[in-house]
Computed example of a mutant assay.
Amino acid sequence: MTRLAVIYIFVELILIIFAVITFVVWDKRYRKNHGIDVPRGFEKTEEVSLDPNSGEKLRVYFNSKTGERFYHTEK
């Protein structure tokens, strides 16, 4: 019975660690290229989203050579 409890706690810890790491990685990926100046090679798209935390409009720019996206704050 004790062994089953240890296995259960171990699995739960692994799931919690995985969830935290996933959130941190996603958040960095989303925020890493959010800035003021649009880099060279990026083209304006029609995609605009509203940041739920700050309420700012974010315009998406796309680099067709690298596939990278850039989020620019619009006023």
Rank of each mutant, 00 (worst) to 15 (best):
R29I: 09
R3A: 08
V6M: 08
K65I: 12
L15N: 03
H34F: 07
I36H: 07
D37P: 01
I16A: 10
E74T: 08
I16Q: 04
V60E: 02
V6G: 00
H34N: 08
S54I: 07
I16F: 11
T2Y: 04
R69Y: 06
K65S: 15
E43K: 15
K32W: 02
K32G: 00
S54Y: 08
D37S: 13
D27S: 13
L50K: 15
V25K: 09
W26H: 13
Y30P: 01
S49T: 11
T45F: 11
R3S: 03
K65D: 13
Y8Q: 12
K65L: 14
T73I: 15
G67D: 04
Y71V: 01
I14H: 03
I16D: 01
E46Q: 14
F18M: 06
M1N: 10
L4R: 08
Y61L: 05
E46M: 13
Y71L: 10
S64N: 11
E12N: 05
W26M: 14
V6S: 05
V20L: 10
R40G: 06
H72I: 01
E74P: 00
D27G: 04
R40F: 06
R40K: 07
I9G: 04
A5E: 13
T2I: 03
G67V: 08
F42H: 03
L13P: 00
K65N: 15
A19H: 11
I16T: 07
I21T: 14
V38G: 03
I21E: 06
V11N: 06
S64T: 10
S54K: 13
I16N: 08
F62G: 01
Y8E: 05
G35Q: 05
K28S: 05
F10Y: 00
F42N: 02
R31H: 09
V20A: 12
D27N: 14
E12S: 08
G67A: 05
G41E: 03
N33E: 11
I7W: 09
H72L: 13
G41P: 00
T22M: 09
T22S: 07
Y8W: 04
R69C: 04
E47P: 00
M1P: 06
I16R: 09
K28Q: 12
N33P: 05
P39F: 06
K28D: 08
G41R: 06
L58C: 01
A5N: 10
N53F: 11
I7K: 07
D51H: 13
R29F: 09
V60Q: 01
A5S: 10
I9Y: 08
T73A: 07
L58K: 03
K28G: 05
E68T: 05
I7G: 03
